[in-house]
């Protein structure tokens, strides 16, 4: 057995299968430290993953679903709001970056830019700016996350 075959069979081995191939598998494990380490790594991962706590659904979720079904349409979800927040932040980032490349931003001028974009963008970016002290810090934070994505 080679390393590729070892990786192909490792989960069958861990599940207690591999009757015919088991001796070949054990022989390779004994002679290949890298594969032996992989096997132990998977065992350890499995031990951790099996002990990880699984979150439960929030109790208010069924009432939300029932209300959405009763209305015949999904209630606007937090995820959709989150997506629009991101889109808004990205859109405004572009506007602010274009503005900032020409001269330093002042709050009155920033307000003029903000008025040019939609209300979601205005709310989203305005909620960020105070937390990051100024426009540049908020812009840099959104830019960093978007570039790292």
């Amino acid at each position: 057995m080679n390393c590729q075959a070892f990786s192909d069979h490792v989960f069958d081995y861990l599940r207690g299968g591999l009757r015919g191939e088991r001796s070949h598998f054990d022989a390779h494990r004994g002679s290949c430290p890298a594969c032996a380490a992989r096997l132990e790594g998977i065992r350890e991962n499995e031990r951790i993953l099996s002990r990880a706590r699984v979150p439960t659904a929030p109790p208010e979720l069924w009432p939300r679903i029932a209300a959405a079904l009763a209305e015949g349409r999904p209630i606007p979800s937090r995820a959709l709001r989150a997506a629009s927040f991101l889109a808004a932040a990205a859109a405004l980032l572009l506007a602010v970056t274009l503005f900032a490349t020409s001269r330093p931003a002042r709050s009155s001028e920033l307000n003029l830019i903000v008025q040019e974009v939609g209300p979601e963008s205005q709310r989203a970016f305005r909620s960020l700016v105070p937390k990051y002290d100024d426009v540049d810090a908020a812009t840099a934070m959104v830019d960093t996350v978007l570039r790292n994505d």
Binding site: A57, I65, R78, A79
Partner: peptide, 8 residues
């Protein structure tokens, strides 16, 4: 919260 939205 995103997971809750997805489940909904």
């Amino acid at each position: 919260h995103a997971a809750a939205d997805l489940v909904q």
